[in-house]
Design a protein around this nucleic acid. Structure first.
Length: 310
DNA sequence: CCCCTTACACGT
DNA sequence: ACGTGTAAGGGG
């Protein structure tokens, strides 16, 4: 089994003075006192999202959906508008067949809302309220995307050449994410609420970079994900600045002590790196483990937080 | 089947 | 002690 982060590191442990026998490293099962750092993910049940948010998640996540959407849009012509027409994700440029106000229409509408949390058949023109910005960081440019519900995505820019990072043998496994322009093609962009979330995220990220902030207090717009992955991401916000835990500890905190690997998979899909501190989760033997932006970025983030300091 | 794991087993 | 291999492991 090859491992990209096989570099041997000095053991760095979550607590400055770890107990000898019962190594409970960080009590992340109990939230640390103070304001909740990521209110958006502490909701027990995923709330019903705005239809823009849901459509956006579809567009970001599903390549096939995206292609279909764009081809439909192209077929509709310059004045046309693509509509996500029904629960199975069929796109159409036509108005819904059912007459407005009819029982049939109400039923299918309710079905749509229940199945996808998203009603697109109202036939109204829509404007996507999204906003995007780039924050320069010691780890390369960070691209932030926000929706009216909160911060949607943090993406490491694809600039691996920066200081020592240029010597990374394999290119960092940055997943391709469509640009905002591509996502919003065919929509009228109307940044309003999203801009406020974006502003807050940019400010707090800059403060984090300048060492004047250790906790993020942001609304987050998480994609609809499974309960366990959601729980894992939620626990990430309880790991204190400058501390680390292992994947198995994270898995236990999320309620499945033996699901360490699943916890890793959840971290691998973390849409909000840095804000949700997946970089503070390491292997149980003290080595780094993986990271979306590569092990060197992970190491740099932990160094930034003083993990290797003393 | 894939994935940012873990424990354990052998080889240096 | 360190590196590598292997199987079990849970969720999507």
């Amino acid at each position: 089994m090859r491992r990209t982060s096989a570099t041997t590191r000095p053991r760095f442990i979550a607590e400055p003075d770890p107990p000898r026998q019962a190594p409970v490293l960080v009590p992340i099962s109990q939230p640390v006192p103070g304001p909740v750092s990521a209110p958006g993910i502490d909701a027990r049940e995923p709330r019903l999202r705005s239809r823009d948010s849901l459509l956006l998640h579809q567009l970001i996540r599903d390549q096939r959906f995206r292609s279909r959407y764009h081809s439909q849009l192209a077929a509709a012509g310059p004045e046309g508008r693509a509509v996500l027409d029904e629960p199975s994700g069929v796109l159409s440029t036509q108005a819904p067949a059912a007459a407005p106000g009819s029982p049939e229409e109400a039923k299918s509408r309710e079905h749509r809302v229940r199945e996808r949390g998203f009603d697109s058949a109202d036939g109204e023109p829509r404007a996507l309220d999204l906003d995007e910005a780039t924050v320069d960081s010691p780890w390369g440019p960070l691209i932030l995307l926000a929706s009216p519900d909160g911060l949607l995505r943090v993406r490491f820019g694809d600039h691996p050449s920066r200081g020592s990072l240029s010597r990374v043998p394999e290119s960092p496994p940055v997943r391709p994410v469509p640009d905002l322009d591509e996502l919003t093609r065919g929509f009228q962009r109307a940044p309003t609420q999203s801009s406020a979330h974006l502003r807050a995220a940019c400010d707090q990220l800059r403060e984090y970079i300048e060492h004047s902030r250790e906790r993020f207090e942001l609304a987050l717009d998480l994609a609809p994900i499974g309960a366990y992955h959601r729980a894992v991401l939620a626990k990430l916000s309880h790991i204190r600045y400058g501390h680390t835990i292992s994947f198995s500890e994270l898995a236990a905190a999320a309620g499945r002590p033996r699901a360490a690997r699943a916890a890793g998979a959840a971290c691998a899909r973390n849409p909000l790196p840095i804000v949700l501190a997946c970089h503070r989760v390491i292997l149980s033997d003290g080595t780094l483990g993986g990271h979306v932006a590569g092990p060197d970025i992970k190491h740099a983030l932990l160094t930034h937080e003083g993990v290797f300091g003393k």
